[in-house]
Design a protein around this nucleic acid. Structure first.
Lengths: 345, 345
DNA sequence: CTGAAAGCGCTAACAA
DNA sequence: TTGTTAGCGCTTTCAG
């Protein structure tokens, strides 16, 4: 006999309402709804049935206030328009959801001020933890307010210098090394590096490694470097600027696949075919990379696994806030497709 | 003089703590922190200063419990890995953030069961509103629990039959019409339709329009239709299956750009060049479409504007729950690039 | 197995 | 201009 008239004034269905209609306490209702073994089966059934009939909706704000747990995982990245991050975000959401967590999203386009504001806002929702990819130029101090508040953080893809923070990323030095070695093996000598910012860990490491490997082979030449954000535009303009130089490159390692796509467009603009005339290597192996014509040779950075691992790491960190920080570097691999070829003599 | 010893036992900084240290009431602190004009300037300054010094963090769960407002906007889409939705989500997040709202994300990969679960979970966070793109096969009844609970909803991109719900999408009939007319104008007669599910509004409308326009020109032939999800695979396999037929098509309209990309790969597999030998039109005008070689002719559906408009509409709906439902159809346009050409005779 | 009572941190009346 | 009081809806002792 479900009496719809709520004894609670507001008309909203709360534990109270259910409790009163069933003449039990709210404590019992609360336990029954969470399927506590301590509640009698019959009571549980009656409570759950009535909750369903009344259209009861659990109020997580109320629960969170009481338990200091929100089951929210905040995810803060600069740009979800880059398929690399979209693919990463997709697996984060999936893994979060599989563990009863929900993703609260914040973005800030490499803008430090916006990042600060976004993090401050996210923090107010009291997420159980945060997965973040620090914007270019972020330093440890930008994260202090989070760590001091005791919010578990794991950095993804990029990292700031903070040995006490968890991190999941790709072994960028290794990936860069393999890619350059491959180009050298193909006979290339004037190999450009296009895209990447010194103000991000990925940019810095990739550029440092590029320099080191080129140096070791007696090939380093600063004129072959074109720094810039990881965008299509950087590739498009960068490769053309490089081609305008005296000793133009015959190959380029791009900061990421977007830069590589832009680079290929820039090459076409000059009537040059990626692959036969000029070798291009990207980074990330975004879904589209395999479909391009010619297919993009690129460094696979395993962004989907990265998202999954970051989520798992965060969950572990939440469970044990005192565990030592972990730094997980995924092993990249070079996926060889059609944009690389032996140097034409 | 900031006495760090909190009178509050827990060690957490709350309004209480600030109030006690300053010997004012929590009400005053609450008002001061929100910059209420009713509180004295000096008091405001002292409160705000101490809050900063103490590292006070506003607790939105507590505020929400009291105000029945969360400032959360839930966004539920099937797949953020499709750049179309990623680009849309990016502007939603941007618009939300600009209006003091934060995005709570849920995804479900065209899976109705998962969609139900995701929506049920999102609802428990009491979002101020929801922007959703219904998964294939969704019907009105799947959304009843939301509308009955009074949660403002706006549907984006796809819609279910529900005249009382807000919707922002593209004028798919118009886009399809223009595209087919263009192909016919180029001399094509055997024009295929690849991808699209009858169980989504976009798939249904595009297929219906395709049929109507082809019929009007005496060109309709069911053998030229290859239905399927909006994925690269659908395009890749679909076009090859169509080419294996007796009267193979000379052009194809694809459900979206991903399908078109797959289609172009399938064509290459058969040694056919998109553009010169076979015309391809995509839909969405995803960022990558312009960079392909040849550039993809496609229907621009303005996903970024769609996201922005949906957010604005939701905000308006939240402000006025009784306003009549609106259906906003953005005007698509055909972007002509290199994958379409006059029929070779 | 169930109930009473307290309290999470905030805001909104209302009173002073 | 500030304080008092009550209460949002839930969970958690602790008693019974």
């Amino acid at each position: 006999v479900t009496d719809i008239s709520t004894l609670n004034g507001s008309g909203r269905v709360t534990l109270q309402v259910i409790a009163e209609q069933l003449s039990v306490s709210t404590a019992t209702v609360s336990l029954a709804l969470r399927n506590s073994p301590v509640v009698a089966d019959l009571t549980k059934q009656r409570v759950q049935q009535l909750a369903r009939d009344l259209g009861y909706i659990y109020n997580r704000s109320a629960a969170s206030l009481r338990t200091a747990r929100t089951n929210i995982l905040a995810v803060a990245v600069h740009d979800i328009t880059n398929p690399y991050f979209a693919e990463m975000l997709a697996t984060i959401e999936e893994a979060a959801s599989a563990n009863g967590k929900t993703v609260l999203l914040g973005t800030y386009t490499e803008n430090l001020g916006r990042q600060d504001r976004v993090l401050a806002t996210l923090r107010e929702y009291r997420p159980d933890g945060i997965i973040m990819c620090p914007a270019a130029g972020t330093d440890r101090a930008n994260l202090d307010h989070l760590t001091m508040a005791g919010v578990p953080i794991v950095q993804i893809a990029r990292e700031v210098d903070a040995p006490d923070l968890d991190f999941v990323g790709s072994d960028d030095a290794r990936g860069t090394e393999v890619a350059i070695d491959y180009l050298i093996g193909l006979g290339h000598r004037r190999i450009a590096m296009i895209g990447g910012l010194q103000s991000t860990s990925t940019g810095r490491i990739r550029h440092e490694t590029y320099r080191r490997v080129m140096d070791q082979n007696g090939l380093f030449n600063p004129a072959l470097i074109h720094e810039g954000a990881g965008t299509r535009e950087t590739g498009f303009k960068g490769v053309q600027a490089l081609l305008d130089q005296a000793d133009a490159p015959t190959a380029a390692l791009c900061f990421n696949d977007l830069v590589a796509f832009g680079t290929m467009l820039g090459l076409r603009q000059r009537g040059i075919d990626a692959g036969s005339d000029f070798s291009v290597i990207g980074s990330d192996d975004v879904k589209e990379a395999a479909l391009w014509h010619p297919g993009l040779t690129t460094i696979r950075n395993r962004q989907e696994e990265m998202g999954r691992r970051a989520t798992e790491l965060l969950l572990r960190r939440i469970a044990d806030p005192t565990a030592p920080a972990r730094r997980i570097l995924l092993e990249p691999s070079l996926v060889i497709r059609g944009t690389t070829a032996p140097l034409a003599r």
